[in-house]
Write a protein that binds this DNA or RNA. Structure first.
Lengths: 171, 171
DNA sequence: CCCGGATTGTTAAAAGTTGTACAATGTAGC
DNA sequence: GCTACATTGTACAACTTTTAACAATCCGGG
């Protein structure tokens, strides 16, 4: 059901046979479970944001801005924080500005720059939506693990996140 | 850096304060680590498929088809297996057909239906790309866990995958 | 056989994303 | 203060995904 061929193909070229470090059965099922959960969870959370007229990306912007000092952030920083390209973020903010959720604001001291500012409506929207979203996250993910599993998985994932973040930085 | 507000907002309405099951600190950091790893890993694996002129979605199709009986699958089944909409899959297959990787084939016994067939080129491409992909998956993910962690995480994730799969089915 | 409803896959148009180039600044070294 | 170079955000064009509608086909009940 999931993807990413990582076990030996049904028929392997004898050449790659010798050298490719195919995943073991245990690794394989873990990898596929991870992929499947990621994808389906994304789908389900998006689904449950729809009634609020927000896509997951919109919500992410609202969260990051709401946690930022003065509820605003430079476009580039926001793009970095949300792992989007500057171009994509620019479009995204244009849409959210049209929806009244954020506002572009000149940046004193750097006339090249702009702030993306959370509006009152943006802030209120976030306050209204967040409780539902947490419930979704709990229902479909967090509450399905024991506290021990949660700690263990965090310990395991944190260095991987670190690694990937570093890779990304360099390009 | 990541997203999805799931902890209490800086200022909570007293109403939601009482009723919203905000994540604990431990839950929060786990949740954000999971999100971050998912997103960045996707990005990185996509990046490392680029030299082969394949997007992750293309690769996923190749994998699923290569594992299917006769290396072909009904469009609807393929859409389900890869968690895509029928429309999106249709476009995707059109592109891959243009690239010579797959071929649409009439479906004997159901004249509405079509098979998506892996071509020789598609199969060969898969054989060629898979080794590199496994190495990527190992380098950025699998090899960064101990065998014990892998088993534990699989045990934890499998029921969640099951849950989400069921949800998806009903819509 | 024939009807009504469900299923299959495609399509057109709208919406969103990506990559590249660009204009407007900023900044460091001379 | 100039020049060279880096940074900021946008704009355009190409591409991908979504949404909604549709034609063709199948299937079950009368």
């Amino acid at each position: 059901m999931e993807t990413n061929l990582t076990e030996a193909p049904a028929v392997s070229a004898s050449e790659s046979e010798a050298e490719t470090p195919w995943l073991t059965a245990a690794e394989q099922r873990f990898w596929r479970a991870h992929l499947e959960v990621s994808k389906l969870l994304d789908y389900q959370l998006g689904r449950e944001l729809q009634p609020h007229n927000l896509a997951i990306n919109d919500y992410e912007i609202l969260v990051v801005l709401s946690e930022a000092p003065d509820r605003r952030m430079r476009m580039t920083d926001l793009a970095t924080a949300t792992l989007q390209s500057k171009s994509r973020l620019s479009h995204q903010i244009t849409r959210m500005e049209a929806a009244g959720l954020v506002l572009r604001q000149e940046c004193p001291g750097d006339r090249r720059g702009l702030y993306a500012n959370l509006t009152e409506l943006g802030w209120d929207t976030m306050q209204k939506v967040a409780p539902d979203h947490v419930r979704s996250v709990r229902q479909h993910f967090v509450d399905r693990f024991t506290p021990e599993q949660i700690d263990a998985m965090y310990q395991a994932l944190a260095p991987v996140a670190e690694h990937l973040r570093n890779l990304r930085g360099r390009g």
